[in-house]
């Protein structure tokens, strides 16, 4: 009997790890942005707050796999989307694209950083001493 319990526990543990990995890979703020900000175009939304605050809110709610802060805006990378938060008057313009289209659209900001020749990024990829050894 104890072997059934042991095998069952192992299988349940594996299922939890598997489910966690699957869920974490599907993190995307697309639905949340659509329900909280005003849509002004296909994949374009207007948020009332300034770009840094909007980007911080999105980062808190949906952890991006990478980020890039530029003097002209904030860019967030998710497994299935690239989100750009740009100044728009007193608020922000939020653009959501799939990763390939987002990379092409915002290449001037994120090229070399999130990609490059053959997908090999070359800028700011190291962890530095903070990454631990």
């Amino acid at each position: 009997m104890k072997h059934f319990v042991g095998g069952g526990l192992l299988a349940v543990l594996g299922a939890i790890v598997l489910a966690g990995a699957l869920v974490s890979g599907n993190t995307s703020p697309r639905g949340w942005i659509g329900s909280h900000y005003s849509k002004v175009g296909n994949g374009v939304y207007r948020a009332p707050g300034p770009p840094t605050a909007v980007a911080a809110t999105l980062t808190r709610k949906f952890k991006p796999s990478d980020r890039a802060y530029d003097p002209a805006g904030v860019f967030l990378r998710y497994p299935n989307a690239v989100v750009a938060v740009l100044p728009d008057g007193k608020g922000s313009r939020v653009l959501i694209d799939d990763v390939d289209r987002g990379y092409r659209r915002h290449y001037s900001y994120i090229g070399s950083r999130w990609g490059g020749p053959s997908g090999r990024a070359s800028v700011f990829r190291g962890g530095g001493p903070g990454s631990g050894k």
Partner: peptide, 26 residues
């Protein structure tokens, strides 16, 4: 030839670990 880098392997490794554990349990 310039394209966005693929997502990290960590997710797939964790999926692999989960799969191995499930298979081992079964």
């Amino acid at each position: 030839g310039d394209k966005i880098s693929p997502p990290g392997m960590a997710r797939y490794v964790w999926m692999g670990i989960g799969g191995v554990l499930v298979a081992g349990g079964l």
